[in-house]
Simulated assay, not measured.
Amino acid sequence: MALRDAGSPDGGRRQGILFDVDGTLIDSSYIHTISWWGAFRQQGYDIPMASIHHFVGMGGDRLVDSLLPANRDRSLDSDIMASHGALYASHWPALRPFDGAKDLLAQCHAAGLTVALASSARKKDLQVMKATLDADAFIDAATSANDAKDSKPAPDILVAALEAIGVEAADAVFVGDAVWDMKAAAALGIPAIAVTCGGVNAGELRDAGAVEVYEGPRDLLENLTSSAIGRLLSLAPNS
């Protein structure tokens, strides 16, 4: 995707905002939970949903490794991940954006920030979620699991998103819903705003490094100027 010219007229540095998608902009965290639950059961593993939900937001490889015994037959891991993908895809028609998600992307874009989706989702899942958001006009780049060697909480996907929009970590803010999002941002020194709409409580998100916590996209949008994004907006060219 071609970059919008978000540099300042005097040649100043570009400011950017990175968004996780699952559980942050799209109401899908519990759909992932039940899809992993079903995939595990197909291979004979009865993993409680609450345990699974705790790890949603990690890459699938890390999630599987975190939840299953170390002495398992690891050759089945790829089958479990494929089953999760198929089960999740069966729920594509049910995906919905959170209230305010599109408006939040639009406001950040209109204010002069370069906007990127930094998702650990599979490329085809991300394409479906982007269509659900219906906000391509406000998104400058989007990265998926295909763009990262290591999944969250490793920061690779954020590095890829920053490179895609030509923004330095010091000039960015990240918005996510999972502990693993907060840890990935912390690894790069990027301020991380958390939303609780993915099902993780505010205290856990703050403990993981969130600088601020909001209920969801609408809550963040209504408090945008006083948020960490607002501090970026004060530097953006159109502010």
Rank of each mutant, 00 (worst) to 15 (best):
M1G: 14
D5L: 11
G7T: 15
S8C: 07
G11L: 10
G11V: 06
G12F: 10
G16V: 06
I17C: 15
D20R: 13
D20H: 14
S35H: 06
S35C: 09
G38M: 11
A39R: 01
F40D: 11
Q42M: 10
D46P: 02
M49S: 12
S51K: 08
H53R: 14
V56I: 15
M58I: 03
G60K: 02
G60V: 01
D65S: 12
L67I: 10
P69E: 14
N71R: 14
D79G: 06
D79Y: 09
M81T: 09
M81Y: 04
A82Y: 08
S83M: 08
G85M: 07
G85C: 08
A86W: 00
L87I: 13
L95D: 09
A106P: 12
G112F: 03
G112L: 07
T114R: 03
T114F: 01
T114S: 13
V115M: 00
A116G: 12
A118C: 12
S120H: 09
A135N: 11
A137T: 11
F138L: 03
F138I: 05
S144C: 13
S144R: 04
A148V: 06
D150E: 15
D150P: 08
S151V: 08
S151T: 10
G166H: 02
D171H: 15
D171Y: 15
V175C: 08
D177F: 12
A178P: 01
D181F: 07
A184H: 01
A186W: 00
A186C: 05
I190K: 09
I190G: 08
G198A: 05
N201V: 05
N201Y: 04
A202V: 06
A202K: 03
G203F: 07
A210K: 03
V213N: 01
Y214I: 08
L220G: 06
L221E: 04
E222P: 00
N223P: 11
N223F: 07
G230T: 07
R231K: 13
L232A: 10
L233Q: 11
N238W: 08
